[in-house]
Amino acid sequence: MSDLKTYGYNTFSEIFVSVSTENIGRVTTVNKTNYKIITESGFKTGELTGQMLYSLSPSELPQTGDWVEIINYAESCIITKVLPRKTTLLRKTAGRTSDVQILATNIDTALIVQGLDRDFNINRLERITVALLDAKIKCIIVMNKIDLDPDWQSKVEKVQNRLPDITIIAISALNNTAIDTIQKQLIPQQTYIMIGSSGAGKSTLLNQLVKKEIQQTQTISTSVGKGRHTTTHREMFVLSNGSLLIDSPGVREFGLALSDSDSVTTSFSDIKYLSEKCKYKNCTHTNEPGCAILSALEDGSLLIEEYNSYLKLRNEAIHYQQTVQEKKKKGKNLAKLIKDMKNKNMKKRYD
Score class of each variant (00 low, 15 high):
Asp134Lys: 07
Ala178Asn: 15
Gln216Leu: 11
Gly225Arg: 01
Asp134His: 08
Val142Asn: 04
Arg252Pro: 12
Asp147Ser: 13
Ser197Gln: 14
Ala131Ser: 14
Ser197Val: 11
Ile182Arg: 10
Ala131Gly: 09
Asn175Gln: 15
Glu253Thr: 14
Tyr192Lys: 02
Gln218Trp: 05
Leu205Thr: 00
Ile166His: 02
Gln185Tyr: 00
Asn161Ile: 11
Gly196Pro: 08
Ser240Ala: 15
Ile214Ala: 06
Val210Asp: 04
Leu245Met: 15
Ser154Pro: 02
Asp247Leu: 05
Lys212Trp: 04
Met236Asp: 08
Ser203Asp: 01
Ser198Asp: 10
Ile214Cys: 11
Ile137Asn: 03
Lys158Ala: 11
Ile214Ser: 05
Pro164His: 07
Leu133Met: 12
Asp165Phe: 03
Gly201Glu: 10
Glu157Pro: 04
Arg228Gln: 15
Phe254Pro: 01
Val238Ala: 13
Val130Cys: 00
Val156Asn: 11
Asp165His: 12
Lys212Ala: 12
Glu235Tyr: 13
Ile187Asp: 05
Val159Ser: 01
Gln190Lys: 13
Thr230Ile: 10
Ser243Gly: 07
Val210Lys: 02
Thr217Val: 14
Ala170Pro: 15
Gln208Ile: 05
Gln208Leu: 03
Lys145Trp: 06
Ala131Asn: 03
Thr204Trp: 02
Ile128Leu: 12
Ser203Asn: 02
Gln185Cys: 07
Val159Cys: 03
Thr219Gly: 11
Asn175Glu: 14
Arg162Met: 14
Ser248Cys: 11
Gln215Ser: 10
Ala135Phe: 09
Ala135Gln: 03
Ile179Asn: 03
Lys155Asn: 11
Asp147Val: 09
Gln185Trp: 02
Arg252Lys: 15
Asp147Lys: 14
Ile169His: 01
Ser248Gln: 04
Leu245Arg: 05
Ser240Leu: 12
Ile195Arg: 01
Gly196Asp: 07
Ile187Tyr: 08
Gly255Leu: 08
Leu132Ile: 07
Asn175Asp: 14
Asp151Arg: 09
Gly250Val: 09
Thr232Cys: 04
Thr177Gln: 14
Gln153Val: 09
Gly201Cys: 07
Gly225Leu: 01
Val130His: 00
Val210Gln: 00
Phe237Pro: 12
Lys136Arg: 13
Thr222Trp: 09
Asp147Met: 12
Gln189Arg: 12
Ile193Val: 14
Lys158Leu: 09
